[in-house]
Design a protein around this nucleic acid. Structure first.
Lengths: 348, 348
DNA sequence: CTGAAAGCGCTTACAG
DNA sequence: CTGAAAGCGCTTACAG
């Protein structure tokens, strides 16, 4: 069997292109990689052969031999691609990657640390050029080796712990403060906090912002008004019931600060079910589609997931391309969006 | 320089593992690939070396030499990963892929046919094992070569045109019929249609379902009540204004069938802005988060994007694994979700 | 400007 | 059970 047809796949190889163009493999490679230094005639012959055979460079082979080992692929490990925050971050990364000629491997971690480590292995096994991670692990020291081996990592949404790397995060503490300030400005003093799993750094930061702002206003936080670790629908409903049904009227909150999306939705649903959506104020952390269609409109501390993703992608490609400046944490500030629920005044 | 340290990357190779374990490269390969036929002692030695060096198989190299050419990666070309429908389809594919040991390259097409063709090239260049595509092109014959070269393709959301392949789609025509039937059952006769770009097959199918149901009920469709090609916010707002402001009262619709998500939201917003959300009925195609928090709750024809994604993924991996049965189109039926807007009765 | 040889890290095809 | 040689499709390092 002649060498040029010994391949297993049906796809044409560079060797086929070279043969058809009547040049050497190396010359064909030069043309395909735009290396220059090839006569006009041969260049044209190769391009014609490429078109004729519909040749596509095999990235696996190319990357394997290449000095830089580039695969033109990056990995994105996010919380859950099906939630709007992760999806927006992903999309921004996708858009930047496309400009840079790279493709994106995406994966959802669902707050599972084992999943994170497994996916990092899968991705580095495929020699991605860089990784974006919204970590589910408590410590990221295990990434030391990956970075040393040449895979830059940029964190999004959550700062790294026990590991030095770039990160792009939202202004969680500041945003939570703003929420509380806003409610206090509308006369509220009994402001409940409903937050996600405390082990999630953003949830912790939002609580810190809440607590700091309350203290700053000289308000004592009634422990009965603080509900942590609300992850998923059921615990949220329970917490809302505790606050709105179980507490005696004078101990009930006049306002809710719901520190995460799912919690906000549960709270709105709970208020509506009790017919109290125009009586109890609410500010939610993180915006969502349709927040304005609900009546009253839901006041939120809006994050900017697209800005987070874009910035992370810029840093990522800069690192991949050799930027070795000290790592930094960038904070994308949040924005208060007043739509109604946050402007309900406290009863006197 | 000794052979074992000649590599460019800092990552250990199988050669390093073999050297450390005191076996040949081939034996190390046998252990890593669970081929069997290796003594307990050597197996253990290799496993220890793998652990000690934190060895990860290089998929590029592995795939390059492998007879089947598998890369353990699949590609997903969807409309826009940032919209909930695409995101859910993607997520289902991700979940199935994980079980199968594959990673997913995702990409958004944004209704751009060139983007679709470019991304197919990028993905096949990386030798993905299979492709899921929600096509933006009008014809998909160009994929013939890819399939012949061994990359199976499964379509989601839209059937292929001019090309024979598996597809998993929603029951668009049936769903639209159901919407109209429901509105007619509530006394409506002047039912407006607001749809996306007619060139999008799902939009066309939904219109067909609408038209068929109207005819079936003996209702003549007033051309002034039909608005096609509403893509994006602005044209939707214009169409709503035409219907609710420009038409004389007796020619206005008493009900709206909004055949796509963005259109539904625009219509709800338009009705609210005019204080008519409890007067004009509405059924939207495609469900979305929070549809129940809006008052009145938004009645929709719900698709099941997760079911579509799961089914597509099953077919995809079956094809990759050699299933050569005739291709088929599977329809995932929609479901009417009554929440309020669709149950508003026509004025008499 | 051009190309023959070697080699990236792995698996295949063979031979012991 | 084990391993030396060849080769996947490409780029590198050299030599003309």
């Amino acid at each position: 069997m002649p060498a040029a047809t010994r391949r297993t796949s049906g796809r044409p190889t560079l060797r086929d292109v070279a043969a058809l163009a009547g040049v050497s493999l190396k010359t064909a490679s030069r043309v395909v990689n735009d290396e220059g230094g090839v006569t006009e005639a041969k260049t044209e012959a190769v391009r014609t052969a490429v078109r004729q055979l519909d040749y596509r460079r095999n990235y696996s082979a190319s990357s394997l031999r290449r000095a830089d080992g580039r695969t033109a692929a990056v990995g994105a490990l996010l919380e859950d691609l099906a939630n709007p925050f992760s999806a927006e971050v992903y999309r921004a990364l996708e858009d930047v990657s496309r400009e840079r000629g790279s493709l994106v491997f995406a994966a959802s971690l669902d707050e599972d640390p084992r999943q994170e480590r497994a996916m990092v292995r899968e991705l580095t096994g495929r020699r991605v050029d860089a990784l974006v991670i919204a970590p589910a692990t408590e410590h990221q020291g295990y990434l030391e080796q990956e970075v040393a081996d040449g895979t830059p990592v940029v964190f999004v949404d959550r700062r790294p712990t026990g590991f030095d790397a770039d990160a792009v995060v939202a202004g969680n503490t500041e945003g939570a403060r703003t929420a509380v300030d806003h409610l206090v400005a509308h006369g509220h003093r009994r402001i409940a906090f409903l937050g996600d799993l405390q082990r999630i750094p953003t949830a912790a930061e939002r609580y810190n912002g809440y607590a700091a702002a309350m203290a700053n206003h000289g308000l004592v936080v009634d422990a009965a008004l603080v509900h942590h670790d609300l992850h998923g629908q059921a615990p949220c409903d329970t917490a809302v019931a505790r606050l709105l049904d179980d507490l005696p009227p004078d101990r009930q909150p006049t306002a809710l600060f719901t520190a995460q999306n799912v919690i906000t939705v549960a709270a709105v649903r709970g208020l509506q079910a009790r017919g109290r959506e125009r009586e109890v104020a609410l500010v939610g952390f993180d915006d969502f589609p349709l927040a304005e269609l609900v009546r009253p409109g839901i006041t939120v501390i809006a994050q900017d997931p697209r800005a987070i993703g874009l910035r992370a992608a810029q840093i990522l490609f800069a690192r991949r391309d050799g930027d070795t400046s000290p790592s930094r944490v960038e904070v994308i500030e949040t924005r208060l969006v007043q739509r109604g629920t946050g402007e309900i005044r406290a009863p006197r």
